[in-house]
Amino acid sequence: MERFIQELALFAPAVLFNIYFAAASIPIGFVLAIGLALGKASSNPWLSRPSRAFVYAFRGSPLFIQFFMFYSLALSFNVSLWKPWGVSWFVLHPLFIGPLVLTLNTGAYTAEIFYGALRAVPRGEVEAARAYGMSRAQQFRQVIWPNLIRLAWPAYTNEVVFLFHATAIVYFALPVIGLQKDLMITAKELFERDYNAFLHFSVAALYFLAVSLVVFFLFGLVYQRLMRHMPAPPRMRFQPKWIR
């Protein structure tokens, strides 16, 4: 038991790295996803085709390959660009590349969720807004966006948890610098020291589960706030789908 508590303390700094990767990529990915979803739904082929291709490419390939690809791409520009500009310490740092790739990845997955919600916005409401003489921007701000975010929120919660799980492979693809280790690397190194797979991996799993539950709780609160106008606030299903 004492060993278990020591182990929990050992993993506490590691979980911060996973939280950092998720927290750094989710807000930017959210904004990117709105743009991509609107682009995908746009009638202009110069906007919709690239957004469609981007979403398809990033949803259709493994995150692991995306990490390797972007990291090696950044490395190949090192001599010609980053070194002369003196930014290679920053651009090649896993704490920068990691969130960058995760942002692009979650942007694509979230865009697909938002695109689905965008198509589910009631047509009549948009038509009513147009009949009131609202401009395109007003329509989006006052009618489409409030509908969209309410429709998309449960699926988006699921995506955020999945992204947090995806942070487990960041350091398998990027170099570990010094003591900057996330949960998986910590578990793996401890395992290589004393070969106690059951203890180390279970503690890492517990941390992942705990943070996921916190995310569900917080996002559930936001959902209740979003739905406060409903007579009986629909509770978010506590058993999530966990599938992307």
């Binding site: 797979a197 890492a204 992942f208």
Partner: peptide, 22 residues
């Protein structure tokens, strides 16, 4: 179904072969 889906796939993917071998 709930425990395995609740942890990252990489974690279980690595854990099972190592644990089985041990």
């Amino acid at each position: 179904s709930s425990i395995v889906r609740g942890v990252p796939d990489v974690l279980f993917f690595l854990f099972f072969p190592l644990a089985f071998e041990q």
